[in-house]
Simulated scan of single mutants.
Amino acid sequence: MSDELVERFELAFNQIHQHLKEMNRFPKNDNFAELLQHSKDRGVIRVHYDALKQYAKLRNAIVHERVRDGYYIASPHVEVVEELEGIKQTLDQPPLGLDVATRPVMFFYEETELLHVIEAFREHGVSQFPIYRDGLFVGLLTDAGVVRWLQESVREGSVAVEGMTVGDVLGHEKVHNVEFVAEDVSVFEIEDLFERSHGEGEKLKAVMITEGGDRDGKLLGIVTLLDLILDDDGE
Rank of each mutant, 00 (worst) to 15 (best):
P130K: 03
K57R: 14
V105Y: 00
V81K: 10
A120K: 00
E82A: 01
R25A: 14
K218Y: 04
E156P: 00
L170C: 03
H172K: 06
G86I: 06
H38K: 13
E111T: 06
A101L: 04
L114M: 02
E4R: 15
K205P: 03
G167R: 09
F129E: 07
S153R: 00
W149M: 03
R215W: 11
H38R: 14
V100T: 01
H124R: 14
G171F: 10
V67K: 09
F108W: 05
M164A: 05
F121L: 02
V223G: 01
E191V: 12
A120E: 01
I45M: 10
F121C: 04
L114E: 03
A206E: 12
K57P: 04
L140H: 04
I73T: 06
E183N: 02
H64Q: 04
E211K: 15
R46L: 05
E65C: 03
E195D: 15
I209D: 10
A120I: 00
Y109R: 10
T210S: 14
A12Y: 00
V166E: 11
E235T: 07
F13Y: 13
Y71M: 11
I45A: 07
G171H: 07
P27H: 13
W149L: 02
I118M: 06
K203V: 14
T112C: 08
E179I: 04
V63E: 10
A61C: 15
V100L: 04
A160W: 00
E183W: 06
F26S: 11
A33Y: 13
G217M: 10
N14R: 13
V138E: 04
I222K: 05
G201N: 11
H48P: 07
K203E: 15
A12F: 09
H116I: 03
F32N: 01
R133A: 04
V78D: 02
I45N: 07
D69P: 07
S153C: 05
H198K: 11
K28D: 14
F180W: 11
D232Q: 08
R215Q: 15
V185Y: 00
A182G: 15
A61E: 09
K40D: 08
E85F: 05
L91G: 02
K40W: 09
I16E: 10
P27E: 15
D231I: 01
Y71F: 11
W149E: 01
G135S: 07
F26A: 12
E183Q: 06
V169K: 01
V181N: 11
E200A: 15
K57M: 09
S186T: 05
V185R: 00
E82Y: 08
L98D: 04
G97Q: 02
Q151W: 01
A12C: 11
H176N: 06
Y49T: 06
A56R: 12
L84F: 03
L36K: 10
G163I: 00
A144H: 12
V187N: 01
G139I: 02
D168T: 02
K205F: 08
V147C: 06
L230N: 06
A74G: 08
E156D: 09
H77D: 14
